[in-house]
Design a protein around this nucleic acid. Structure first.
Length: 573
RNA sequence: CGGGGUGUAGCGCAGUUUGGUAGCGCAUCUGGUUUGGGACCAGAGGGCCGCGGGUUCAAAUCCUGCCACCCCGACCA
């Protein structure tokens, strides 16, 4: 493709509403454009990059017994009523009516429709298992669209659904998709981690999330550098120990601590290690039916999910007490809560590690007072082994190495659905024994457009995008330094035609611009292999370089051709 | 949905406090000089100042209603 003809409206300045690096670069590089909040279009270069990702996903799905279909995005209300999700999906669903006032939605996902279709067409165990997928535009009216392609209201998703005769079959299908996903994400080249999904309130159902490591990511994960352990921070086991010191138990003392509210204040006031402190947090159930006092090591953070599990409540219903409520309950202001004298209606829950602290310091439930030399007895409290959020440096529960913490973006997930939808929609088949049974299902998603931004988040520098060869919109860009010099133009186009003929995806910058403009654009759009044709052409030499490093090599056109072919061959593993 | 902020040329912004003929940089077009890291000179085009109502002789500017966009807030590809 000639750059003089390519629709590639690059911007020198960053559009003011682009909030993350990938959105800024994709917009500046003329790869995407925003129409309204959370709704983007793909221009030629951006679309090509996305199609590369699609192709990788398609190849891996096809290679793992999935068959591609294309289901309608527009769906009638009736099939959603069967699973109750017309109501339950909530305001995120884009709903519309036709001229006869019949209700429809734009598909946010397709469990219902696939199940509905299967139920009418698949009747025998002999036809199972079956795995179908599609790559299609999805619609979700997000509460707050942001981060460019990451949280869009219209986005491209690969979604797959498996139907099996029994539980074993379902897990096999699930494992098969897990392999396909790892292969696909490996080929895209970005760094990612597989974490166990939050089985949380639902209990039971198994799922995994594929998290691309990106500094702007919305989820925080803990992972081990030595083994494959990875989990979201709220769920990850926080393995750290407090070594019990062989100290003499001193007598408890009430200490006047005017205005000393935070752990940092306490450290300064008592001039001691933060592991000496017991932090007491007051949490209630939303409807005020239960109140909890949670004691954790002072320098750590409470995990609401872990708390919810240990008290058998839903995480969503647990709230931290407000300052007023603390005053009423504990007779103190924020910062002086402690386990003593809280009254019977408060359930006190303690992180196990507290009892290793000798002569601890905690709030006295009285404004401006703390206790020191506190030595709690485990037998007096409900003890839970782990209530806190994992931190970098904690021990890997799997192999004992040290954990790291990073932020990430969910680019894929796989889910064992069981018979949730087949039951709701009465989708059955006849098993060997002639009995009607519910399909055992799985669903599997990859955010295709989200992957585009994940790649850009991971592969860029100060000058622009730095596409991995496997998903670059073009593999090679030939820059003609001065289009007024015939020898440069001729040599450029000769190489261009030759590469094209041998199947290389190549751009040629034949614009009548100054060299600086062309180099800047080449950097910005991030084509991996660069050939610059300038003055050296008089001696038959061109410059060969890679986007990843700025080192240039002066070689002949023939050598250039061979080098390109070699690089491309190496990347096709 | 709650709180905060912003809407002026394709992009980035000034002008609004104190009402008086709509500006700057980049981009675009024409001519010329340039041509290895975002050139220079001369000229030109491009605006319902988010939309509606009001105040006023006069509104980008003041008042008011609405809309859009962005930021901060517990289910997600």
């Amino acid at each position: 493709m000639k750059l003089s003809k390519l629709y590639m409206p690059t911007l020198r300045e960053v559009p003011s509403d682009a909030d993350i690096m990938s959105a800024q670069l994709l917009l500046r590089a003329g790869m995407i454009r925003k129409l309204v909040s959370g709704v983007y279009s793909f221009l030629p270069l951006g679309f090509r990059a996305m199609k590369k990702i699609e192709a990788i996903v398609r190849e891996e799905m096809d290679a793992h017994d999935a068959q591609e279909v294309l289901m309608s995005a527009i769906q009638p209300r009736e099939i959603w009523d069967a699973s109750n999700r017309w109501e339950n999906f909530g305001p995120e669903m884009f709903k519309l009516r036709d001229r006869h006032d019949r209700e429809f939605c734009l598909g946010p996902t397709h469990e219902e429709y696939f199940t509905f279709m299967i139920k009418n067409e698949l009747k025998s165990y002999k036809q199972l298992p079956i795995n179908m997928y599609q790559i299609q535009t999805k619609y979700r009216d997000e509460r707050r669209p942001r981060f460019g392609l990451v949280r869009a209201r219209e986005f491209i998703m690969k979604d797959a659904y498996t139907f099996d005769a029994d539980y074993e079959g379902m897990t096999k299908s699930y494992d098969n998709m897990a392999v396909a996903y790892s292969k696909a994400f490996d080929r895209m080249g970005f760094k990612y981690k597989v974490v166990q999904g939050d089985s949380g309130n639902m209990g039971g159902s198994i799922s995994h999330e594929y998290i691309a490591i990106t500094p702007s990511g919305e989820s925080t994960i803990a992972y081990c550098n030595a083994c494959t352990y990875a989990a979201t921070d709220e769920v990850a086991d926080a393995l750290f120990t407090i070594v019990k010191k062989d100290e003499i138990y001193e007598d408890m003392q009430r200490v006047h601590t005017p205005n000393i509210r935070t752990i940092a204040d306490l450290e300064r006031f008592f001039d001691c290690d933060p592991s000496k402190f017991i932090k007491t947090l007051l949490v209630k159930k939303e409807d005020d039916s239960r109140v909890f006092a949670i004691m954790i090591p002072g320098h750590r953070t409470l995990s609401l999910i872990k708390l919810a599990k240990s008290v058998g409540e839903s995480e969503d219903e647990l709230l931290m007490l407000s300052e007023d409520e603390i005053g009423k309950l504990a007779g103190s202001v924020l910062g002086f809560a402690g386990p003593m004298g809280l009254g019977n209606q408060v359930e006190i829950i303690a992180d196990e590690r507290l009892f290793s602290i000798t002569n601890a310091i905690c709030g006295a439930n009285e404004s401006d007072y703390h206790y020191e030399n506190v030595n709690l007895k485990a037998s007096d409290y409900k003890v839970v082994d782990d209530l806190i959020l994992v931190e970098a440096g904690d021990t890997c529960p799997n192999c004992g190495a040290t954990l790291s913490i990073d932020r990430g973006t969910e680019v894929g997930n796989i889910f064992q659905l069981g018979d949730k939808y087949s039951k709701a929609m009465q989708a059955t088949f006849l098993d060997k024994d002639g009995k009607a049974k519910h399909f055992m299902m799985g669903s599997y998603g990859i955010g295709i457009s989200r992957c585009v931004s994940a790649v850009v988040e991971q592969f860029h520098d100060d000058y622009g995008i730095n596409w991995p060869l496997a998903i670059a919109p073009y593999q090679v860009i030939i820059t003609i330094v001065n289009t007024k010099v015939e020898a440069q133009v001729n040599a450029g186009f000769k190489l261009y035609e030759r590469l094209k003929l041998s199947g290389v995806e190549v751009l040629i910058d034949d614009r009548n611009e100054r060299a600086g403009v062309k180099f800047a654009d080449a950097d910005l759009i991030g084509i991996p292999i660069r050939v610059t044709i300038g003055k050296g052409i008089e001696d038959g030499l061109v410059e060969f370089s890679l986007r990843t490093d700025r080192e240039k090599m002066e070689i002949s056109i023939d050598e250039t051709f061979e080098k390109v072919k070699l690089l491309l061959a190496k990347s096709q593993i």
